[in-house]
Simulated assay, not measured.
Amino acid sequence: MDISGTPLRAVRAALFTAFVVTLSTASHVLLSRAPLPPATVGAVTAGVFATAYALAGRERGFGRIAALLIPLELAADTVFTTGQHACYGRAGGPLAGPLRAVGLDVLCEGRVGTPLARMTGDPGHTAALLAHASPAAAWLLLAAHVGVGLLAAAWLRRGERALAQLL
């Protein structure tokens, strides 16, 4: 059985999407201490799946997986941050945000990751910390994203190799 067949291609893309979106969503909620709008998570999921399906034609090596995973993770983080600001405002309040102001609150209904956000403590502390963050904080955050992306790429590569050997 070939690893690039259509049924396996969809399964591989779905597993990659589940891994990337879960990792990105959980880490974003834990670091921002604020939940995510479901519409934003859905948009990221659809984008990651479409990209993964388009590129799942053959077995990939670590470099190619990392080259896809790290930019996807950074793009997901940017979309998540934009979605949070659009729905909840910069302060994270439930009624603020430009989408609510123009009546598009249906896109902001629900909150993905609320239990994780509650676990992290006071959201006001994070907002104050980010408002007075040094320029080094942005570089540390980027380094953390790249490090997590490289570890995830190594894990996904091992799974890709195991599937190829199994088939």
Score class of each variant (00 low, 15 high):
residue 112 V to P: 00
residue 83 G to R: 01
residue 150 L to N: 03
residue 153 A to P: 00
residue 95 L to T: 15
residue 151 L to E: 04
residue 55 L to M: 11
residue 54 A to I: 06
residue 82 T to N: 05
residue 139 W to M: 10
residue 139 W to A: 14
residue 56 A to C: 05
residue 137 A to Q: 10
residue 67 A to H: 03
residue 128 A to R: 14
residue 117 A to V: 02
residue 108 C to R: 02
residue 120 T to K: 06
residue 57 G to P: 11
residue 142 L to E: 06
residue 132 H to T: 14
residue 75 A to E: 05
residue 102 V to I: 15
residue 102 V to W: 09
residue 130 L to S: 04
residue 49 F to A: 13
residue 157 R to S: 08
residue 49 F to W: 15
residue 64 R to I: 08
residue 100 R to G: 11
residue 78 T to C: 06
residue 146 V to C: 06
residue 51 T to A: 14
residue 153 A to F: 01
residue 133 A to S: 15
residue 120 T to I: 08
residue 146 V to A: 14
residue 91 A to F: 03
residue 48 V to M: 04
residue 72 L to C: 10
residue 157 R to F: 04
residue 106 V to M: 06
residue 75 A to G: 12
residue 55 L to K: 13
residue 66 A to E: 03
residue 131 A to P: 03
residue 132 H to Q: 14
residue 79 V to N: 02
residue 106 V to C: 01
residue 87 C to H: 04
residue 89 G to E: 10
residue 115 P to D: 12
residue 134 S to H: 05
residue 65 I to G: 00
residue 85 H to L: 11
residue 141 L to S: 13
residue 82 T to G: 07
residue 81 T to L: 14
residue 56 A to V: 03
residue 58 R to Q: 14
residue 71 P to K: 09
residue 154 A to F: 02
residue 109 E to M: 07
residue 70 I to K: 03
residue 151 L to W: 10
residue 55 L to I: 05
residue 101 A to Q: 14
residue 133 A to C: 07
residue 153 A to H: 01
residue 72 L to F: 01
residue 116 L to I: 08
residue 154 A to C: 02
residue 102 V to P: 05
residue 79 V to T: 13
residue 125 H to I: 13
residue 52 A to D: 06
residue 157 R to H: 12
residue 157 R to W: 10
residue 134 S to F: 02
residue 75 A to I: 15
residue 125 H to S: 12
residue 133 A to G: 09
residue 143 A to P: 05
residue 91 A to H: 09
residue 78 T to M: 11
residue 71 P to A: 11
residue 73 E to N: 11
residue 147 G to A: 15
residue 121 G to W: 05
residue 138 A to T: 11
residue 66 A to L: 08
residue 73 E to C: 00
residue 76 A to V: 11
residue 77 D to M: 07
residue 101 A to F: 04
residue 87 C to G: 07
residue 91 A to N: 11
residue 68 L to I: 02
residue 131 A to M: 06
residue 104 L to M: 13
residue 107 L to P: 02
residue 87 C to P: 05
residue 79 V to P: 01
residue 138 A to Q: 07
residue 126 T to P: 00
residue 49 F to V: 13
residue 82 T to C: 02
residue 150 L to I: 09
residue 64 R to D: 12
residue 109 E to A: 14
residue 142 L to Y: 02
residue 90 R to K: 07
residue 134 S to C: 01
residue 68 L to S: 10
residue 102 V to S: 09
residue 112 V to R: 00
residue 68 L to F: 13
residue 152 A to F: 00
residue 84 Q to M: 11
residue 80 F to M: 02
residue 97 G to I: 03
residue 139 W to K: 04
residue 113 G to L: 01
residue 143 A to F: 04
residue 108 C to K: 02
residue 83 G to V: 09
residue 59 E to Q: 13
residue 143 A to N: 06
residue 127 A to P: 00
residue 73 E to Q: 12
residue 150 L to T: 07
residue 94 P to K: 08
residue 137 A to K: 03
residue 96 A to E: 15
residue 153 A to K: 00
residue 87 C to I: 10
residue 100 R to S: 06
residue 81 T to R: 12
residue 72 L to P: 00
residue 105 D to G: 09
residue 65 I to M: 11
residue 138 A to R: 09
residue 117 A to R: 00
residue 52 A to C: 07
residue 50 A to V: 15
residue 114 T to A: 15
residue 121 G to A: 08
residue 73 E to M: 12
residue 126 T to I: 08
residue 128 A to I: 07
residue 141 L to W: 07
residue 124 G to D: 10
residue 155 W to C: 12
residue 110 G to T: 07
